[in-house]
Every structure is written in C-alpha cells, then in structure tokens.
Amino acid sequence: MKTIGLIGGMSWESSLLYYQIINQRIKEKLGGHHSAKSLMYSVDFQEIKTLQHQGKWDEATQIMIDSAQKLETGGADVIVICTNTMHKMAKEVEESVTIPLLHIADATANEMVKDGMKKVALLGTAFTMEQDFYKGRLIEKFGLDVIVPNEAERVIIHDIIYQELCLGIINEESKHSYLKIINNLSQQGAETVILGCTEITLLVSQDDCSIPVYDTTRLHAESAVDFALKVD
C-alpha cells in the first residue's frame, strides 16, 4: 500500500470527509482491520481564504508548494489537494515535487465520460466557476460541454460555501437555494451536476436531485485509494 499525502484544512470540514472516505474504501477493498497509510498537512484556512479574496495567488501557491514538499519529505507517494479551488495551482504544485499529483477534475471527469455524460453543470466557488483552470480542463482534456449558473446564482453559491459550509453550518434554506439553481441548470440542458467544491457535499446529495450528481470529494478520495493499492 502506497502512502497518500493529503493537503487539507481548506476547510477542515471537507478534509474530515476525505479521511473518512479513504479509510472506508480501504476497508471495503482489503477487509479486516486495514486502514489507509496517509499523511495530512493541514493549512490554516483563514490565511488561504484571505489570499484568495485578495487575489494574492502567488502567495497562496507558495503555501501549497511548501505543503506538498513537506508531505513528500514525510514519505508520501502521491499528493492529493483536498479542495477544488486550490487546483488553480495544481501544475505548480506538481512540478515542485517528484511524486504524482492526483487532479480532482480528472477523477471526476473520468467517471462522467465513462457514464456517457456530455453536457455538465459546474457548481463551486466563484473562482472555480468563473476561471478557466477547472472548466478549461474539463473542456479541453475530456471534451465536456460545461455550463455554470448565472452571475446572481454564482454569488449565492459562493457566499453559502464561505459563510456557512466552511464553518460547518448546514442551512435548509441554503439547500433549497442550491436545488433551485441545479434545477435551472437542468432546464438549460445539463445532464448532470458536478459538486465542484468539497464542502457542497455537506449540503446536497444525490437523494436531493433529479439528475445525476458527481461528488468531487468522494471521487477524488476514492481515486487516491485506487492509486495507493495499484500494483506497479
């Protein structure tokens, strides 16, 4: 079993899910008392959040690079960034270490392509929905048609993530807002919806939606286990 290196804390609420999902999948695969060999370097999300909203991406990138290098030094065999938004600097992080990085968009898109999905809706932070680092990868590498909510809806999604979900606040009214937005995207032709923020899974699940839901947190965590158990 290879050792999974997790860059967590963004937020710790979703990092907890990563740890849980990874160990549950190891148990499913291996049985008995097996658990995952893993390391987690957890950052202070307040620092990251401030840099994000100030547009200081170079400084945020350096924190991610430092975190990845600490994990490699500690014995990790692979890097997993436990957040969608910070894949904005995935290339720089990957180039800073000698071990592979598992990209969250790839883990998600591979499943969608396998399931025959073509037109997909993307929910996430404003950074993920509006910038090209995530949408562009889905479009260029996997040939998916990606749509996002309108500007007003993007504000709602972003604010709920940072003001509620990242603080562990689960609000039924916010859930209804998300489901209304997902329904609007479905009416625009979206065949499925990507929960493109690792906190959204705290609020919305497949049971709530009439179209298929792709939970990036679960898919990313499961891909890490598959990597860890893969025979070279």
Rank of each mutant, 00 (worst) to 15 (best):
I63W: 13
W12K: 07
I104S: 11
R137T: 15
V43T: 15
I65N: 02
I79V: 04
M112L: 10
E92V: 01
G75C: 04
F142P: 00
T61W: 02
G136Y: 04
G8R: 12
K135F: 09
S38N: 14
L51E: 06
L17F: 00
Q69G: 12
L51F: 09
V120M: 06
I81M: 02
I104L: 07
D66Q: 14
E130I: 12
I139G: 00
T125N: 10
H33W: 10
Q52P: 11
Q69L: 12
Q24E: 15
M86Y: 09
S35G: 05
I63G: 09
F127D: 00
L101Y: 07
G74F: 00
T83P: 04
M89Q: 07
A126K: 11
H53M: 13
E47C: 06
L71E: 08
A68E: 06
E13P: 07
D132R: 04
E59V: 08
I99W: 05
S35N: 06
W57H: 04
M89L: 01
H33R: 13
H87G: 09
S15T: 15
I21C: 12
F45T: 00
Q131K: 15
M112F: 05
K29Q: 15
I99Y: 08
V97S: 00
T83A: 15
M40D: 14
V93R: 01
D77W: 06
I21P: 00
E28K: 12
E140G: 08
